[in-house]
Amino acid sequence: MPEAYEPKIVAFFCNWCTYLAADLAGTSRLKYAPNARVIRVMCSGRVDPQFVMEAFGDGADGVLIGGCHPGDCHYQEGNYKALRRFHLLKRMVKQMGIEEERLRLEWISASEGDRVRAVIDDMVARLKELGPRRRAPSREEVLVG
C-alpha cells in the first residue's frame, strides 16, 4: 500500500529571529506538522538561490526561508538582500514550472513562536493540495505566457 504523500519542506531559518522563534514554539509546546527540515543560517541573507535549487532538485516539495522583519535584521540589511533575491527568484522558478506556493519567504521575529507553527501548518496544507513536486508536472499548467 503506497504511503500517503507527506510534503517535505526545507526551511532555512536565520539564527537570530526565525530559529529563535521556532525554539520559542518548542518551549511553548505549540504543536504543528512534522514536515519541515530546518537548516540554520546566521542570516536570511546567506540563503543562496543555489540552495533553493538544490533543495527542490533533491526532492523538496517546498522551500521556506525565514528571516527577521525588515529593519530588524541582526546584521542590519541581510534580510533586504534576501528579499530582493527572493522576488527575482520567485519570477524565475515560476517560469521553470515551480508553483508559487512552493517557495515562501516569511519574516518571523524571535517572539513570534506561533507564527512558525501557523506558517508551517499552512504551507503543509497547501503543499498537500499541490501534490509532490517530483511527479512529472503538467507543464502547461505552470507555463508563463
Binding site: D23, T27, R29, L30, A33, P34, A36, R37
Partner: peptide, 20 residues
C-alpha cells in the same frame, strides 16, 4: 541537532517526530 524544541516538543506524531 535540535530534536527537542524543533521536534519532540512540537510534534505529537511520534513517527513524524522521529523521521524529522
Amino acid at each position: 541537532v535540535n530534536i527537542r524544541e524543533h521536534a519532540s516538543w512540537v510534534h505529537t506524531d511520534r513517527a513524524g517526530a522521529t523521521a524529522r
